[in-house]
Computed example of a mutant assay.
Amino acid sequence: MSPKELRAYCLSFNAAVEDFPFGPRTSVFKVRGKMFALADLDARPLTVNLKCDPEDALRLRAQHPGLIVPGYHMNKRHWNTVTADGGLPDRLVRELVEDSYDLVVAGLPRADRLRLDRP
């Protein structure tokens, strides 16, 4: 997955926005003010921090050692750092981004979730 594809996919979700609270190099993708993805789109290798269910996070790390690791500078129980530049199938990276978005949306207040027209 290229940086351009990653950015476009993150922004394709309902109410997703890109923000730069950590400086101009770090893209933070949010929904209703809550982060669901964080990446330096100019870095090589391209990695993205994604929220993950704790049990799934452990399973994914075991299945993809070196490509999915505990979240860099994040709560390692709930976040993974995913190498997105070819070591993993693009389909899996897209699924992990969507899962991260869905987890964040699930934690939003009910009124915000209803505005997003998502369960």
Rank of each mutant, 00 (worst) to 15 (best):
E5R: 12
E55G: 11
V93E: 01
L60Q: 12
S100C: 09
V104N: 04
V97N: 00
G33K: 07
P109V: 06
G33F: 08
Y72T: 06
L103H: 11
D102S: 14
S12R: 10
S2D: 15
K76A: 13
E98I: 00
A62Q: 10
G71P: 13
D56N: 14
P119C: 00
P54S: 11
L96C: 03
R113M: 07
V17S: 14
F22A: 12
L103A: 10
R118K: 14
L38I: 10
C10E: 00
G87Y: 05
R77Q: 14
L41P: 09
Y72R: 09
L67R: 04
A62P: 01
A106E: 08
G87H: 07
D42M: 10
L11K: 10
L60D: 12
D19H: 14
A8Y: 00
E98A: 12
R61E: 11
R61N: 05
L6G: 02
A106F: 02
D42Y: 05
L96N: 01
H78Y: 15
C10Y: 01
C10L: 01
R110D: 12
T47C: 07
D99H: 10
V93H: 01
L103N: 10
R115E: 15
V69E: 14
L6C: 02
E18Y: 06
K4H: 05
V82H: 09
P119V: 11
E55K: 11
D102T: 13
L67C: 03
P21Q: 12
L67P: 00
E98C: 01
P70A: 13
D56H: 13
S12V: 08
